[in-house]
Design a protein around this nucleic acid. Structure first.
Lengths: 201, 201
DNA sequence: TATAATTTAGTACGATGTACTAATATTGTC
DNA sequence: GACAATATTAGTACATCGTACTAAATTATA
């Protein structure tokens, strides 16, 4: 494994433990047994660590979406996808929680709005297909709201989780938020879809 | 106005502009034309500034809830309340955005879970009354989800707003999120309730 | 007015992110 | 295999940060 990757892994580890701002670059270097100068060679600014972590997170997400699009559409498979996305976000929580404060710095370099737009078009496509296979039933207004809801939810749930439910473990947290998502889908699910949702409620 | 209040106002101002971490204590002191030592007399740690701001925010919120409870229950009045709560949060956004990263430090001193529990019991009470006056119609499961939704929404919307909609002004942002809330209420609104929601959709 | 308490300014200290230089490893080329 | 070029590493210096500390100034109290 390259030094760059080792740095990223350790940084995420420490960010997850104590947050980005409580973790110093010297601490990262020390626990990797490399010099601070070496670290700043690979990542000139601490923010660059965050950007790299977020990119890696994004790539994992893309792969998960691609895998979903590879198979047959279905509410069951889609909820499985969401659950895996939540797990991925959970393991990158240390990177997320720094994002808001750093938007002033990395806003220009890491345009979340582009990612956001891609996600929304994915969602549109997915929901349409789920209506096609008879799992969901909705009008245009419902769909627009559902897209808003999921986009909002996927952006924010980890922050609420870390503030209000930090005492729960990963499994409990994810099951809580999957129930939350399933409840929303229940509003536009057909009878067939309702049966799939049962597993998460 | 006391020095303490002047510090809080200026700090919130600067936090809103550039975020908590980009704003140094020396910068706050300089723009108030006081010494750093004076600032650290009133607020020993930078985190104490954040705590004080969040407390002030909480007190404003409490007063808004109290004013609502003082009058007649109604979906229209409740949505007005939510809209005002959003404005209050917006004006304290600089304090919020530091919260996640600081939970390790201030978690013990500022227990968000207590606030959360109070909010949830308020919500329960409000929703029950709204059903009583015939604006809403829901079962227990709907109600539990609605409480989850609003609690989640009120915690997180400002973060999404600052990342994805920072280019919009305050009025646009609030109208966007009020539409979002109204859409959710539409799921459990009676015909009478629907008419009230029209204003926000 | 004398004394105590509060508030202020000024400064010093350790830690932080980062820039910079020199040394060492690695790679590619003849 | 020798040598030049590049990439990687270590070490250190510097400005800035949050904060602690002391002494002066102001305000309140008797």
């Amino acid at each position: 494994m390259s030094t760059r990757e080792r740095i990223l892994d350790k940084a995420l580890d420490l960010f997850n433990q104590s947050g980005m701002y409580k973790t110093g670059v010297r601490e990262i270097a020390r626990s990797l047994e490399i010099s601070p100068g070496n670290l700043s060679y690979h990542f000139a600014r601490k923010e660059d660590l965050l950007i790299a972590l977020l990119e890696r997170y994004g790539e994992t997400n893309d792969a998960l979406y691609a895998a979903y699009f590879d198979g047959e559409p279905g509410l069951g498979r889609y909820l499985e996808l969401i659950s895996t996305l939540l797990e991925n976000a959970y393991s990158h929580r240390g990177a997320f929680l720094g994002l808001d404060e750093l938007r002033a710095v990395i806003g220009a370099e890491y345009d979340y709005r582009v990612v956001e737009e891609k996600r929304r078009s994915f969602l549109d496509h997915i929901l349409t297909k789920l209506e096609g296979v008879g799992d969901l039933n909705f009008d245009e207004m419902d769909k627009a709201f559902m897209i808003d809801f999921i986009a909002f939810f996927q952006r924010c749930w980890i922050m609420e989780a870390m503030i209000s439910y930090a005492h729960l473990d990963k499994t409990q947290i994810i099951s809580r938020y999957m129930r939350f998502v399933a409840m929303q889908f229940a509003q536009i699910a057909t009878l067939k879809g309702q049966r799939v949702l049962g597993r998460w409620l």
